[in-house]
């Protein structure tokens, strides 16, 4: 489905990605874990080419998206839905307009059809009848859910979740995790979740990859990860300050 080959990226003198190799399996949820600021979001942005790599390739269904022109890139992007860290709802639009946005931009559907889909997607995330609210009137958890509704509005094949549970209370975290699992099943999605929330990782992930110092240091099922002897993973999962991960 998605294949990342030897991806390198540095900002100035700082190497963020230093040869990432990863294969994302179709119809599964892959969780990428790692420290905050460790390059997880950067990796995610490469997958939809919001960033261009210094070297390496990202193959989506066999197409190398690092070399595409704008037009072909837009075609590829239609397969994706993205839930950004802060939901990234457009402040100037209502909830309804936000969810309808990709439909209006990319399809020629009638307004009535669009309204129907918007209502359906909002129901799917458990928020019915809030189309006329502005994003600023919503709580953090609600915004995330509207963001998810927007991400799945076009019925994408792949959904990327950028730290979906950061900054939420435990109950809301639980709810969002369940939502990720449900939508993955209902829409038969290939999901990529970026997280450092240890509990969520094991709950939602079919496969887990650990990103450390610009490389994938461990990849496997939750069971394999839990039993891994890799000191980086051991330290990360136990939350210890002692170990190969340096605290700066």
């Amino acid at each position: 489905m998605i294949k990342i080959v030897d991806l390198h990226k540095s900002f100035g003198k700082q190497k963020v990605l230093d040869g990432v190799n990863l294969e994302i399996e179709e119809g599964k949820t892959t969780v990428i874990i790692g420290r905050s600021g460790g390059g997880k979001s950067v990796l995610l942005k490469h997958i939809i080419r919001l960033l261009k790599p210094d070297s390496g390739h990202v193959l989506v269904d066999g197409t190398d998206i690092t070399k595409l022109n704008d037009k072909d890139l837009n075609e590829i992007r239609k397969k994706f839905g993205v839930l950004f860290q802060g939901a990234a709802l457009f402040d100037s639009m209502t909830v309804g307009e936000n969810v309808a946005f990709p439909l209006k931009e990319q399809t020629k559907m009638k307004d009535s059809e669009i309204r129907k889909i918007v209502a359906d997607r909002l129901r799917a995330v458990g928020l019915t009848g809030i189309e006329e609210k502005m994003p600023s009137e919503l709580s953090g958890g609600m915004r995330k859910r509207v963001g998810l509704a927007r991400a799945i509005a076009m019925h994408p094949e792949i959904v990327l979740f950028d730290e979906p549970t950061t900054g939420l209370d435990p109950i809301m975290t639980e709810a969002i995790d369940n939502l990720i699992i449900d939508t993955q099943k209902n829409f038969n999605l290939t999901s990529i979740v970026i997280s450092h929330d240890v509990e969520s990782i094991f709950k939602v992930g079919h496969k887990i990859a650990m990103l450390h110092e610009g490389k994938i240091v461990e990849y496997g099922t939750p069971e394999e990860i839990r039993e891994s002897r890799n000191p980086v993973l051991v330290q990360f999962l136990s939350g210890s300050t002692e170990g190969p991960i340096k605290i700066i």
Binding site: V82, F84, F90, Q106
Partner: peptide
């Protein structure tokens, strides 16, 4: 600037809206 730092601009790009 706000749209940039809250990733709204990225969201636009992702939804194939330049």
């Amino acid at each position: 600037g706000t749209m940039r730092v809250t990733e709204q601009i990225d969201a636009l790009s992702v939804m194939a809206a330049n």
